[in-house]
Design a protein around this nucleic acid. Sequence first.
DNA 1: GTCTATATGTGGATAGAC
DNA 2: GTCTATCCACATATAGAC
Lengths: 197, 197
Amino acid sequence: MRDRRAERREATRAEIVAAAWEVVGENGIGALSLRDVAERVGMRPPSLYEYFDSKNAIYDALFADGQRMLYDALTEDKDLDPLEQMRARTHDFIDFCVQNPARTQLLFVRTIPGFEPSPESYALAVRTLTAVNEAFADLGVDDPSAVDLYTAMISGLVNQQLANEPGGKRWVVLADEMLDMLLDHLRKTGRLTEGEP
Amino acid sequence: MRDRRAERREATRAEIVAAAWEVVGENGIGALSLRDVAERVGMRPPSLYEYFDSKNAIYDALFADGQRMLYDALTEDKDLDPLEQMRARTHDFIDFCVQNPARTQLLFVRTIPGFEPSPESYALAVRTLTAVNEAFADLGVDDPSAVDLYTAMISGLVNQQLANEPGGKRWVVLADEMLDMLLDHLRKTGRLTEGEP
DNA sequence: GTCTATATGTGGATAGAC
DNA sequence: GTCTATCCACATATAGAC
């Protein structure tokens, strides 16, 4: 039998998380305040404690929610060959990041003093990273340091874009060139053999 | 004639900045509090206002100080050819960043709600970036997007290292490979002609 | 120049009434 | 579950003694 009480509670938690996304979207990830969130959901601040144990628990819910959104944003397209797949997902990732700078900071930069994602939330990040590793495996690349080069290059583009020209495209447009550069390098060093030149 | 009053004042300002570095070094860049700083320099919090107009003014002094440290860390070595010069400075930069994560966040990531460096402080960042552009010009590379690729790749290594494995070397050790990859790519696309293979 | 004292506003968090 | 009341820490700022 359905537990209507638990369903209601989950719905309210989701409402709070949505309100928190609004707040950090407007003021930055570091400027989340319980007052702002409470006002947006029509509660008094102490009532939030019925749903989350602390402000960091809200950050953790945002982190988990953001990781889920990222995973969903990187949808597989079975019609594409592995190389085009990689290119498409790289664009998906970059779009996801520049579309919401506060979310990107929460997911990929240690920014909030005292906040560490819980093991359950972090597991969602691992799931996505595993998918990236599999995408490289599909390309025939098994060297883990190739993936480290990739994540550094792409996250570097995003970081530079957000830090120096938020809303612009100066770094983002270099994504394809960056990817080609990496693939050439992997071919040259014998870590990638299949695919076109 | 020397203005002993002004000298004393500058010395105290420097003491406050040093104390602020200690605080952010221990607690993170977002956790700077005037109480902590005041206690460390043996003052009461209100007395700090004699030297800085606001907490953000202290952040600005830290930003300027950090930019000066970075500029000094990237010392030219006239004995090296441009290519070895580039490699040496890249290592200097990476060491500078991983050595003090809080400082790196302040200088290169928009992290503190409401803080923007003053024009005077930002000019110090521009000075360093100009030096990077000149280093590429010495290599014979004039395309500005080459420098954008470079800053994205190197800052990406640093960010991944600090976010995922602070204190480790997993990404940092890829610096030379990353640089070689970029130089190969610039040769291949006709933007770099001099230098060894 | 530094202090004490004081004030206002903001923010996280808890106790206890309803 | 939600509220009021309250507490503590902090940023910011001012007045006035020393």
